[in-house]
Each structure stands twice: as C-alpha cells, then as structure tokens.
C-alpha cells in the first residue's frame, strides 16, 4: 500500500500561537514551541514530523494563513 508522507512549514513571524492547528491535527504532529517569535508568541512547530500525512487540517483552521502543506506518496 502506498504510504503518504506530509510536512508543514509554519510562517514563524506570522503565527500568533493560538493553538488551533495543534487541536485540529489528527496525528498530533504540531505543538507550540517553547521559544517565541519576535512578537512574543510561542509559534506552532512540528514535533512529530514522521506522523504527518499532509491532510492540511492545520492549514484550513489557521486564522492567519501561516501554514503551507506538502505531501508525497512513497
């Protein structure tokens, strides 16, 4: 069976750390970073990149359009 692997890129400076993408992710890929961006927000980042399937759920619910999603079939 073809395996799907995904990856997300978060626009760190645009992210406001609202946590909605973390809640929306079905594979628990994302979490808020301990470090903050220049505005003081703990931005979202991939903590379990291997589990990402590129479903774009995080990007769809992101209120600031900070997330770009990529997906490949292996």
């Amino acid at each position: 069976m073809a395996k799907i692997k995904g990856a997300v890129v978060v626009n760190v400076e645009r992210c406001k750390g609202c946590n909605l993408c973390v809640v929306a992710c079905p594979s628990n890929v994302l979490a808020l970073n301990k470090e903050a961006n220049s505005k003081g927000y703990n931005y979202s980042a991939m903590v379990d990149a291997d589990s990402c399937v590129g479903c774009a759920a995080c990007a769809l619910v992101c209120p600031d359009a900070c997330i770009t999603v990529y997906k490949v079939r292996i």
Partner: peptide
C-alpha cells in the same frame, strides 16, 4: 525532500497579502 513546490497541497492564496493581521490570536 517533501518540502518541494511539486508536492504542494495547501498554501496561502495570493489574494491575501503578507501584511500581518491585527486580529487577536485564534479569531
């Protein structure tokens, strides 16, 4: 390897520009 324009699934539309929005986080 995955992060490659050929594998793009979702990106911000160009109609929305890069100005940071003033809305509260999560609005």
């Amino acid at each position: 390897d995955i992060i490659n324009p050929a594998n793009l699934v979702y990106a911000k539309t160009k109609v929305m520009n890069d100005v940071p929005m003033h809305y509260c986080p999560g609005c």
